[in-house]
């Protein structure tokens, strides 16, 4: 499938900010089943966009802006060719052995509720890890309600599970946290989803999880949909949790109220050509 992504994040400051710094993980890498046809990143303010790679192998861009800054936007535009691989992710850049992804982070620290959830699939895991992980993903999907108001980027896995509400980030954190409790390396993946309901304009990107399964390697699980990723998924970055894979992390000095406007378009590239 050929997927076209256009993602703009616009920042407005009133009064203007004195300076700003941002770290972007907004550029996909190719791997088996994902070929980046073209991709460009643009910041509409004078700055040097410094490309790099983070410790886990994700492509990063960093820039600093000198004020006064009233507004600026970060835009990515690109096209990715994908193939369905039944969730199995091969050919990715790996800088660490899977064992790294057993680490606990603040956002994925297990609490009693997570331990209990993990306990429910322990038996299935013992018989067949893939089945157990699908069960886990399905349980999260069944028990959590999608709700953009209930949580923030700082909500921990256990807190979201207790709330029973959250966004894809929370679903992924719960999955990761429980998988690690069960001794399975798991990580957070950020990216884009071509929605099957045809909704092109979205409020945000997507996030899901990957677990490392002996014999298969990294396998994707999307607890927000209770499915494994298909060729409708574009993989941007993978890390221990949201914070490590966040498409944009930033900080600014001075200034007043910050307002943020995000627009994400994910569509079939073909359709774009026809229109």
């Amino acid at each position: 499938m050929r997927i076209r992504v256009s993602h703009t994040t616009r920042y407005d400051y009133s009064p203007p900010a004195k300076s700003a710094i941002q770290l972007l993980r907004l550029t996909p890498r190719g791997h088996e089943g994902q070929h980046v046809r073209h991709w460009r990143i643009d910041v509409d303010a004078p700055c040097r966009l410094k490309a790099g790679e983070d410790a886990l192998g994700n492509i990063t861009h960093a820039f600093t802006l000198e004020g006064p800054i009233q507004s600026f936007s970060v835009t990515v535009d690109g096209e990715v060719e994908t193939q369905d691989s039944a969730g199995v992710v091969r050919g990715t850049v790996e800088r660490f052995p899977p064992g790294l992804f057993l680490r606990t982070t603040t956002l994925t620290e297990p609490d009693d509720a997570i331990l209990a959830l993990a306990g429910e699939v322990r038996e299935a895991m013992r018989r067949d890890p893939i089945v157990g992980l699908h069960d886990l993903s399905g349980m999260i999907h069944a028990r959590m309600a999608f709700d953009t108001e209930a949580t923030t980027t700082a909500t921990k896995a256990g807190a979201a599970l207790a709330l029973g509400h959250g966004v894809c980030q929370d679903f992924a954190h719960i999955f990761i946290s429980a998988a690690r409790v069960l001794g399975v390396s798991a990580r957070y993946v950020s990216g884009y989803l071509l929605r099957h309901d045809g909704l092109v304009v979205q409020e945000a990107g997507h996030a899901w999880a990957e677990a490392h399964v002996g014999g298969l390697g990294w396998v994707g699980f999307d607890p927000a949909h209770g499915l494994s990723p298909t060729d409708a998924y574009v993989r941007l970055a993978a890390a221990l949790d949201y914070h490590g894979a966040a498409p944009i992390l930033g900080s600014r000095y001075g200034g007043g109220q910050e307002s943020l406007d995000v627009s994400v378009r994910v569509e079939h590239a073909r359709r774009q050509i026809q229109s």
């Binding site: 983070d54 410790a55 800088r95 660490f96 052995p97 064992g99 790294l100 057993l102 680490r103 221990l240």
Partner: peptide
């Protein structure tokens, strides 16, 4: 090492 809370993957290489 890898799961040590003080291990910082950011320091690799």
């Amino acid at each position: 090492i890898l799961c040590n809370p003080y291990f910082r993957p950011e320091m690799a290489q």
